Amino acid sequence: MTLIAAGVSTADVLMRENNYFRLLEFPFVPGRELIGFTQDGRRVAGFTSEGAYAEKVAVRRSLLWEVPDELDHDEACALTLDGQIAWHLLHTALAIRKHETIIIPNAASAVGIYATQLAKLAGCRVIAMDSGDLRLQIARDLKADAVVDYTDTEGLADRIREAAGGHIDAAIDMTGDEAIFAATLDALGFRGRMVIDGSSSPRKGAISRDALVTGSKSICGFWLPPLFNDLHAMGNAMQTIFEMAAIGALKTPEYTRYPLEQAESAHRALAAGFPGKIILNPRQYWY
C-alpha cells in the first residue's frame, strides 16, 4: 500500500535506542501505525510490527480498517495506534467500570489524552498526572477530575490520594519512572489494580511483593502486538474509536507534522516532551 501518514510513538524512539523491553536486530525501519491507500484506492488505517516509515508498506489485510470520510489523514493517523492502546489499557487490561477512580499518568501524551477521554466517557473519575502547567492544562481541558504534578516525586502518593479524595480503583503505568510507579502503586486503594504499558515504558525494575500483598493489589502488563491476532478485539476497538472521533465525541490531540525524511527531527521532538502527536508525511502528501 502507498503511505499517506505514519505516526511517531515513544516505542519507536525506544526501539531506535535499543532501549525497548524487546531487543531488536539492526538495521530495522521504525514505525508501527500508518494511513495509506490500497491498490484499489481505499483509504485505510493499518498496523505493522515495524517498517511504517516508508513510501510503500506491506500490511496484513487483517490489520487494515477503512477510515471514515469525516476524518482527515492526520486525524486518522493520530487515532490509530494511541487510540487502540488507550482503549485496551482501560477496557481489556483494567476492565474499568462506571464510577471507578483511575490514575492516568503522562496525561498530555497522545495515549494519555485518549485514555482520559475514554475513561470519562465510561463514567470514571480521572486523576491525571503530568509535569508542568502546560501539560496539566491539557488534562484540565479534557475534564479530568483532578490533576497532579509529578515533577517532584516527594510525597507524591499522598498528593495523589488527596487529589482523589477517596478510594482509587485503578491506574496505568507508562512513564518508565521508578518513583512515579512506586507512588502510584502506593496510592492505589484496597484491591486496586494497575496495568503497565509495555509500548511506552522502558522500566525494568523489580516489584515488591509486600506492596501487592498488603493491599491485595494486582498488576498486569499490556503490549498491543499480541492482540494483532485477535481480529475481533482489534476491529471492535478501531471501529468504536473511529466512530467516536467522527461524531466529535473523541478529540484527537494537537499534532505536528514532519516530512518523512525528517524522522530524526521528529524523534528528537518527541523525546524532548512534545505534547500530543507527531506525524510523518511523504512529500506528495505534505499539505
Results as ranks from 00 to 15, higher is better:
Gly176Ala: 02
Met244Phe: 15
Ala93Leu: 03
Ile278Glu: 01
Gly276Trp: 01
Ile180Leu: 06
Arg43Gln: 04
Arg191Asp: 06
Tyr150Cys: 04
Leu71Trp: 00
Trp286Ile: 10
Asp149Met: 07
Met194Thr: 06
Val148Asp: 08
Gly123Thr: 10
Gly235Ala: 03
Tyr53His: 09
Asn229Phe: 12
Thr80Asp: 01
Asp40Asn: 13
Leu250Lys: 07
Gly205Ala: 10
Val147Cys: 12
Val8Asp: 05
Asp72Ser: 08
Ala266Tyr: 03
Thr153Gln: 07
Leu24Arg: 15
Leu188Arg: 05
Arg161Pro: 02
Ala95Asn: 14
Ala76Leu: 06
Pro282Arg: 06
Arg32Met: 08
Ala76Asn: 07
Ala110Tyr: 05
Gln117Cys: 02
Asp173Tyr: 12
Val126Ser: 06
Glu55Met: 07
Ala164Lys: 10
Met194Trp: 02
Ala249Gly: 11
Ile35Tyr: 07
Leu89Gly: 09
Arg135Trp: 00
Met238Asp: 01
Ala108Thr: 07
Ile207Trp: 06
Phe181Gln: 00
Phe26Ser: 15
Ser9Asp: 09
Ile241Leu: 15
Ala171Thr: 07
Ala108Lys: 04
Glu162Asp: 13
Leu136Trp: 05
Glu264Gly: 15
Asn106Met: 09
Lys56His: 14
Leu89Thr: 10
Glu55Leu: 11
Leu89Val: 11
Tyr258Asn: 09
Arg191Leu: 11
Ser109Pro: 04
Ala93Asn: 03
Ala122Met: 05
Val213Ile: 15
Asp130Phe: 02
Glu178Asn: 09
Thr256Cys: 07
Gly31Pro: 04
Leu121Thr: 03
Glu154Cys: 04
Leu188Ser: 04
Ser109Ile: 07
Leu64Asp: 00
His91Thr: 11
Val8Trp: 00
Phe222His: 08
Ser216Gln: 13
Ala182Gly: 00
Leu142Lys: 05
Asp197Ala: 13
Ser199Asp: 13
Arg161Ser: 09
Asn281Glu: 06
Gly123His: 05
Leu136Asp: 04
Thr101Met: 08
Gln117Asn: 06
Val44Trp: 01
Trp286Tyr: 12
His267Met: 15
Lys217Pro: 12
Lys277Phe: 01
Tyr285Lys: 06
Tyr287Trp: 02
Tyr285Gln: 08
Tyr53Thr: 08
Leu142Met: 12
Thr92Cys: 03
Glu178Leu: 02
Pro259Tyr: 10
Ile104Glu: 05
Pro282Lys: 03
Val57Gln: 04
